[in-house]
Design a protein around this nucleic acid. Structure first.
Length: 571
RNA sequence: CGGGGUGUAGCGCAGCCUGGUAGCGCAACUGCUUUGGGAGCAGUAGGUCGCAGGUUCGAAUCCUGCCACCCCGACCA
């Protein structure tokens, strides 16, 4: 491609509403343009990268025996009613109505559609196992879209769905997909980690997420460095630690008028934060005797919403009680709550259950109890794993101390089981002639998000540093003074023709610009290999070579073509 | 959904408080010069100041309503 014939639309200034590196760089080098909140156009440059990701994904899915198809993005409401997700999927589901008043959703995922397809197409165990996939635009009406295509509302996703006669077959295929995903991210040359994950509202039991590691990632991963354990913190179990020490203090009531937060309490009194308690009041599940339930964790710990929602006492989704509700039920406001004389049911975290001589609100305005001890001062209530793990916690498989890192979720695989085939009455005949609901697996990859994640992981001050498999162009030829110097132009044109002829994606910058502009653009766009052809070099029979993010060098003119072919693996 | 903020040329912004019909930088276009790190000079073009009402002789500016976008929060009591 010649730059003069391409739409290279780079920006020198950083657009005001881009926060993170990938978003800024994608806008600056002109890969995407925003249409409206969370919805982007992919420019010719951006699309080239997107296609690169697609190609690797497609090749590996095909190699694993999966069958590509394409399903509609507009889906009838009836299908979603069959699985009750029309009402339960939540506000992310974009709903619409046609002129006849029929309701539809713009597909955020395709379990219903594929299961509908399967119940019509799949009749016999002889057709199984089978996995269908597609690469398609999805829409999720995110509460707060941000970070460009990282958390967009409209995005490109690869979603695959497999069908099996029994659980063993699903299990086997799940492993195949796990390996396929690993291979995809290896081929894309991204640093990634597969972690145990929560299956969220897609449902199912076993589930792994694939994360591209980056400090800007929205997810936290708990893992043992060099070890086997890795899990999303949403799911990582905080194991119980140690025996509870014997009481040494008497419980006493203290006036704490200015201590409404744990921080203030610790500041104003001689109390380590590990001896404080955080009392969170949430809505109880409908079948509970009380409207509210208290969840208690140590003062320096965080409540884990995913774990809390799994408690039978707690309403889903997790809803914090308002101050008015709390005062009505307890008689004291947030900031003065604690386990002693608490009039509503409570569940305490394992770490809190192992505490002695601790301080907590007295459930009386502006009062705390210090020196509280379980059993002696208050009965120890139900214990559960309620908190997020913190760095240094032992791994639940006892393989070492946990470290917390950040990741960007780019892939997620699930064992769905028969949730959808049962709900939608998909049935195949097994070997014994009995009708069974096929076991299903579901496998997603955020294709557009991968582009942003790759940039988060691979950029510097000057721009993107693409892993080669993702680069929009493999080689850039920068002829200096191209429009004036005949020999520069001849060299550049000839090299361009040869490389293009060899099937290499080359960008020849034939704009009549100063060198600085061409260098800056090539670096911003992140082209891995740059060949600079100038009169000065030609005088000495050489061309300059620059590796993006690497060392610069020189190439002799008589070796130029071979060298360039070698760069692209075409020698 | 709650709180905050911003809408003025393609992008980044000033002007608004104190009303008098719009300006700067980048980008774009033309010409000349320049040519190894985002050039210089001269010139050109581009805006119903988010939309709708209102106040006023007069509104980008003041008032009301609406819309859009951005940030923070939505467990950390």
């Amino acid at each position: 491609m010649r730059t003069s014939a391409f739409h290279l639309a780079t920006l020198r200034e950083v657009p005001a509403d881009a926060e993170i590196a990938s978003h800024q760089l994608m806008l600056r080098c002109g890969m995407i343009r925003k249409l409206t909140a969370g919805i982007y156009s992919w420019t010719p440059l951006g699309l080239k990268v997107l296609k690169r990701v697609e190609r690797v994904v497609r090749e590996e899915m095909d190699a694993a025996g999966c069958l590509e198809m394409l399903m509609p993005s507009i889906q009838p409401a009836e299908l979603w009613h069959e699985t009750d997700r029309w009402d339960n999927f939540g506000p992310l589901l974009l709903k619409m109505t046609d002129r006849a008043g029929r309701e539809y959703a713009f597909g955020p995922t395709h379990e219903e559609v594929i299961t509908d397809f399967a119940r019509a197409e799949l009749r016999s165990y002889k057709q199984l196992p089978v996995c269908f996939y597609q690469i398609q635009t999805k829409f999720r009406d995110e509460i707060r879209p941000r970070f460009g295509v990282m958390r967009a509302r409209e995005f490109l996703m690869k979603d695959g769905y497999s069908f099996h006669v029994d659980e063993a077959s699903l299990d086997d295929f799940y492993q195949v997909m796990y390996r396929t995903y690993s291979r995809i991210f290896e081929r894309l040359e991204l640093q990634f980690k597969a972690v145990i994950a929560d299956s969220g509202n897609i449902g199912g039991a076993t589930s792994h997420e694939f994360h591209v590691l980056a400090d800007s990632g929205e997810d936290q991963i708990a893992h043992v460095p060099g070890g086997t354990f890795a899990a999303n913190v949403e799911l990582a179990e905080a194991v119980a630690t140690g025996e509870r020490p014997a009481p040494t203090e008497q419980m006493r009531k203290v006036d704490t008028p200015d201590a409404k937060t744990i921080e203030q309490l610790v500041d104003q009194f001689d109390l380590p934060i590990e001896k404080t308690v955080k009392t969170l009041v949430v809505h109880a599940a409908e079948d509970q005797p009380t409207a509210l339930v208290a969840l208690l964790v140590r003062g320096d710990h965080e409540l884990n919403a995913v774990k809390a929602e799994k408690l039978p006492q707690v309403a889903t989704p997790l809803t914090m009680a308002g101050e008015t509700e709390i005062r009505a039920a307890i008689g004291a406001g947030p900031g003065s709550l604690g386990p002693v004389d608490l009039p509503i049911p409570m569940v305490v975290d394992r770490a809190l259950a192992a505490m002695s001589d601790f301080g907590a609100g007295a459930n009386i305005e502006d009062k705390h109890f210090f020196g509280i001890n379980w059993d002696r001062d208050v009965a120890l209530p139900e214990i559960a794993d309620l908190r997020n793990v913190v760095a240094g916690d032992p791994a639940p498989d006892d393989s070492g101390a946990l470290e917390l890192i950040r990741g960007i979720e780019v892939g997620h695989i699930f064992q769905l089981g028969t949730k959808y085939s049962e709900a939608m009455n998909a049935v195949v005949m097994d070997e014994d002639g009995r009708g069974v609901n096929p076991w299903m697996g579901c496998y997603g990859i955020g294709v557009s998000r991968i582009v942003a994640a790759a940039i988060e992981q691979n950029h510097d001050q000057r721009g993107i540093v693409w892993p080669e498999p993702l680069a929009p162009f493999t080689i850039a030829i920068l002829p200096l003074n191209h429009h004036k110097s005949h020999r520069v132009r001849e060299q550049a044109d000839e090299l361009y023709a040869r490389l293009t002829g060899a099937g290499i994606d080359v960008l020849l910058d034939d704009r009549p610009l100063r060198p600085g502009v061409m260098f800056a653009d090539a670096e911003l766009v992140g082209i891995p290999h740059v060949l600079v052809i100038g009169d000065k070099g030609l005088d000495n029979g050489i061309v300059e070579y620059r590796r993006r993010g690497g060392e610069d060098g020189e190439v002799r003119l008589d070796q130029l073509e071979q060298f360039a072919l070698g760069l692209a693996g075409k020698a």
